[in-house]
Design a protein around this nucleic acid. Structure first.
Length: 595
RNA sequence: GGGCGUGUGGCCUAGCGGAGAGGGCAGAAGGUUCCUAACCUUCUGAUCGCGGGUUCAAAUCCCGUCACGCCCGCCA
């Protein structure tokens, strides 16, 4: 609804400006501060003052006179306040918002008939997912969700680096060592925890064994890599045995978040189908291609990158970057847009990738990269190879344990003693625990560095997932108390929706809440445009504040509430429920019915 | 050394050209005969790293400077 209102105001303001012979290129639209009664404001008058030869407040007055609110559906009045123009919402705005939000798909925007592939996580299949990487699936999943909500046709991809030296080392180690050679037990009963021990063992061996032994091992590793390069089935099968197993474990871990994927795209695919070879020949034809130090490289300094991109090693094998070029050309063929979520440590590569794709004749406008800062431990970096870091599984377990403890503690000193059985407690512990981890990560700007600390990551106090989830539980509680089903649209239930009149909602708390509900689709729109899901998180917090104010001041089910008010407030609660449930679902945070 | 990013009350964070710099944590004081107190109310606390500049208007843009992070492999 806010989107319609904004469009309407843009139109009207543009009309008024051209009527007065003012430029219409910048409408100065902005959201007013909280204590102002409007939903939308404009500060154009400032800019026009010198041109008009009049002080801003006077210009604002002229504009207000030129604008007739009677012509507008969603605006009841255009009011000036000093130099500002304020657009006040009409009853129709409130009513249509209320009606729209009682549908359970509220916030979904119109189909844009545009396909987009979101690639995220793509961690090397070398072992358990650690929290250093956890930001990637959490941000990536939310980016995919918000695009989906905004009407894009979204596919989620995990690009599997199964062709690099790391995997050759892993495969060699897996085939060479036995269980007996390993010093430790798996940290957890899952396949990637088992197999990572071979990887670590192999790396330790390469660092510490005698020169001759290392040379022998290197020869084997080299042969695996050459086999992959040649598109050799046997080499592929050998590596796949390790990759597929480890990946299945990582998939299980990510599934706990949950972060699901439509496709796992293997790097070797672009070697086996010949795309990489074709790409190499095309790269060689480019003006930027040079043959230096026995290797083929791309000289990119004319394009602002002072580091050459090697695309063919002196031994004739391709590199990750080469295959990734083929991978991206494939994405461009399959999708209208391609979004990649990756760590800031890959920034230079991302730039090289984009530039090289352009040199190859691709239009890269549809390629967008979302970069996030790495999560570090207070004591330093996390590394799968060295075995340092906190496993994502451990973080999630700890989060659930702490949440369970919290539920049990709170159960004792509740006012209303509703019946939570053991299943409920377990359900809530999962929803709250995992929700808190996701929310903590997704609510921050990705460019900010994070140092992982248990207590900070698992704080259930205000401004965290449980704070927002609690609002949802409150909504459900009220609806259930009124014998309504929180999960289905209000229109299908026994409530006289047609009679709803928003003017029954007279208090500021009700108005503010409804106004906030109305802004949700615009938040989705902007968050999708800028690929910034943290905006949705910021919105959920504002929303929770507004709802709590309503909850405090406006009883719904009390005996002395007028029936018409009761019905309308119930609709408002249902609208709130759908809004917050959908906002949380974009963030990948579950919305508990009770907690 | 070069490139990129980040610096907002003791701690965390929103805002990223416009209306008193919003929140949260921690600290102080209150609130439960009334739809779940994982809530709410009130108070304390900020020269928005520092110095210049642009603008009617700067946390926000530009220049410089400092601190921190990341990157600068024929690794991925």
């Amino acid at each position: 609804m806010f989107l319609s209102l904004r469009a309407e105001v843009e139109d009207a303001l543009e009309g008024a400006l051209s009527e007065l012979d003012f430029p219409t290129d910048d409408l100065g639209l902005e959201e007013p501060p909280e204590d102002v009664d409007s939903v939308l404001a404009s500060s154009v008058a400032f800019r026009l003052a010198s041109e008009a030869g009049a002080p801003p407040p006077q210009v604002a007055g002229q504009l207000a006179d030129a604008l007739d609110a009677d012509d507008l559906t969603y605006v009841s009045e255009v009011r000036t306040q000093g130099p500002y123009l304020n657009f006040l919402p009409s009853e129709a705005y409130f009513e249509e918002t209320l009606e729209a939000a009682t549908a359970d798909d509220y916030g979904h925007l119109e189909d844009r008939e545009t396909s987009v592939v979101v690639e995220h996580t793509s961690a090397n299949p070398t072992g358990p997912v650690h929290v250093g990487r956890a930001r990637n699936p959490i941000i990536g999943d939310a980016v995919a969700n918000v695009l989906d909500f905004a009407g894009y046709d979204v596919d989620r991809h995990y690009y599997v680096n199964d062709a690099g030296r790391q995997m050759a080392v892993f495969t060699w180690a897996y085939e060479t060592f036995d269980e007996d050679d390993l010093e430790s037990e798996p940290e957890r009963d899952r396949i990637e925890y088992d197999l990572v021990r071979y990887y670590r063992k192999g790396n330790a061996y390469l660092e510490n064994a005698s020169e001759a032994d290392v040379a022998e091992a290197e020869a084997e590793i080299e042969s695996i890599m050459q086999g992959l390069e040649a598109g050799d089935d046997e080499a592929y099968e050998r590596v796949s045995e390790v990759v597929d197993q480890v990946l299945s474990g990582m998939k299980a871990c990510l599934g706990r978040l949950p972060a699901e994927f439509d496709e796992f795209v293997k790097e070797t695919r672009f070697m086996r189908n010949g795309d990489t070879d074709d790409l190499v020949s095309r790269l060689k034809e480019l003006d930027e291609a040079v043959y230096e130090d026995d290797a083929w490289q791309l000289e990119l300094d004319d394009h602002g990158i002072d580091k050459n991109l090697v695309f063919l090693r002196s031994d004739g094998t391709s590199l990750y970057a080469t295959r990734d070029l083929a991978h991206h050309e494939w994405k461009f063929e399959e999708y209208d847009r391609a979004v990649t979520v990756l760590g800031e440590d890959h920034k230079l590569q991302a730039k090289q990738l984009r530039t090289s794709l352009e040199l190859l004749g691709n239009d890269t406008d549809g390629l967008q990269q979302v970069l996030y800062s790495y999560v570090n431990l207070p004591e330093g970096k996390m590394s799968t190879r060295r075995g340092t870091g906190v496993d994502l599984d451990d973080l999630l377990d700890e989060a659930i344990d702490r949440a369970r403890q919290e539920v049990e503690d709170r159960l004792d000193d509740r006012i209303r003693d509703d019946e939570l059985d053991d299943d409920d407690i377990e359900r809530i512990a999962h929803q709250v625990g995992i929700g808190a981890v996701r929310y903590d990560i997704v609510s921050k700007q990705p460019t900010k560095a994070i140092t992982f600390e248990w207590d900070r990551a698992l704080d259930f106090e205000a401004q965290s997932a449980p704070y927002v989830q609690y609002v949802h539980a409150r909504c459900c509680g009220i609806l259930e108390e009124a014998d309504l089903d929180p999960t289905t649209p209000l229109a299908t239930q026994d409530v006289a929706l047609a009679d709803l009149e928003a003017d029954v909602l007279a208090t500021d708390a009700e108005r503010d809440l409804l106004e906030t509900i109305g802004r949700f689709p615009a938040v989705v729109d902007e968050a999708a445009d800028d690929l910034e899901p943290h905006r949705v998180a910021t919105y959920t917090r504002e929303f929770a504040d507004r709802f709590n104010a309503f909850y405090r001041e406006c009883p719904v089910l009390a005996d002395d509430v007028d029936p018409a008010v009761r019905e309308t407030r119930l609709a408002l609660v249902a609208a709130s429920k759908h809004t917050i449930a959908n906002a949380l679902s974009i963030l990948g945070v579950e919305a508990p019915r009770s907690m």
